[in-house]
Lab assay of single mutants.
Amino acid sequence: QLRFETNGEEQAKKVLEEAKKHNLEAHVTIENGKWVVHVK
């Protein structure tokens, strides 16, 4: 499982879109005010 700390909602959405293009499972959590994308 990969973990990407992003700078906010915009970047998190871009990472999610990329993951979906590659048929990867991804979800976002907010940790300590940071948007974190988890990709399987």
Rank of each mutant, 00 (worst) to 15 (best):
H27Y: 15
W35Q: 03
T29E: 10
E18P: 00
V37N: 01
G33Y: 00
R3N: 08
E17Q: 13
A19Y: 09
V39H: 00
A19L: 15
E9T: 04
E5Q: 06
N7M: 13
E10G: 07
K14R: 14
K21G: 05
H38T: 15
T6M: 10
A26T: 07
T29N: 05
V36W: 01
K34T: 06
K21S: 11
E25M: 09
N23H: 13
N23M: 07
E5T: 05
A12C: 13
N32R: 01
K14T: 08
H22W: 05
A19D: 02
E10F: 05
N32Q: 03
E5G: 02
G33I: 00
A12K: 02
F4P: 03
V28R: 01
K14M: 11
G8S: 15
V15G: 02
V39L: 10
V28M: 12
L16G: 01
E5L: 06
L16C: 15
Q1G: 14
A19Q: 02
N7P: 08
K34N: 10
K13V: 09
V36K: 00
E18S: 13
K40N: 14
L24Q: 07
T6D: 05
R3V: 13
K14I: 13
I30Q: 11
L2N: 09
V36G: 01
E9D: 04
E9L: 08
L24H: 08
K21T: 06
V15K: 04
V39M: 05
V36I: 14
V39S: 01
N32Y: 02
R3T: 10
H38Q: 07
L24T: 04
Q1C: 15
H27C: 14
E17L: 12
N32F: 03
A19R: 02
H38F: 07
G33F: 00
V39G: 01
E31Q: 06
V39W: 02
I30A: 04
K14E: 10
L16A: 08
K21W: 08
E17H: 09
K21M: 11
E10Y: 06
G33E: 05
A19K: 03
E25W: 04
K20T: 10
E18W: 15
K40W: 08
L24S: 05
V39F: 05
E5W: 02
E9S: 06
V15I: 15
K40Y: 10
A12R: 01
L2E: 08
G33W: 00
Q1F: 15
N23V: 02
H27Q: 09
N7W: 13
A19G: 01
H38G: 02
L2T: 13
R3W: 07
L2V: 13
H38E: 09
N7Y: 12
K13S: 10
E17K: 11
N7E: 15
L24E: 03
H22D: 04
E9M: 10
Q1V: 11
K40Q: 14
K20N: 08
Q11Y: 07
A19P: 00
E9I: 09
F4Q: 04
G8A: 08
E5V: 14
H27R: 10
L24M: 12
V36H: 01
V15Y: 14
N23F: 11
F4M: 06
H22E: 06
V37K: 01
I30E: 07
V37T: 02
E17D: 13
E31N: 04
K34G: 05
E18D: 11
A19V: 11
V15T: 03
G8W: 09
W35M: 06
F4A: 04
G8P: 01
K14W: 07
Q1L: 12
R3M: 09
A19F: 13
Q1T: 14
K13Y: 12
K40I: 14
H22V: 06
A12H: 01
G8V: 11
K40G: 13
Q11C: 15
L2M: 12
N32S: 03
K14G: 06
K40L: 13
L2S: 10
N7V: 12
K20F: 13
W35T: 06
N23P: 01
A12G: 02
V37E: 03
G8F: 13
H22P: 01
N7F: 11
A26V: 09
E17G: 08
V36M: 02
I30F: 12
E5C: 14
L2A: 08
L16F: 10
H27F: 15
T29V: 09
Q1A: 13
K21H: 10
F4H: 06
L16S: 04
T29K: 06
R3Y: 09
E25L: 11
Q11S: 10
G33H: 03
E18I: 15
R3D: 08
K20S: 08
T6V: 15
V28P: 01
E9Y: 12
L16N: 01
E5S: 02
V15W: 14
A19N: 02
H38P: 00
K13Q: 14
A26F: 06
A12Q: 01
A26I: 05
E10H: 08
L24W: 13
Q11A: 14
F4E: 04
V28Q: 02
H27V: 12
K34M: 11
K14F: 06
E18F: 15
K13D: 06
N32L: 03
E17P: 00
V39T: 03
F4R: 03
K14L: 12
A26Y: 05
W35N: 04
K20W: 14
V15N: 02
K21D: 07
W35F: 11
H27L: 09
G8Q: 10
E18H: 15
L2W: 09
K13A: 11
K21Y: 11
E31G: 02
V39D: 02
A19E: 02
H22F: 07
K13R: 14
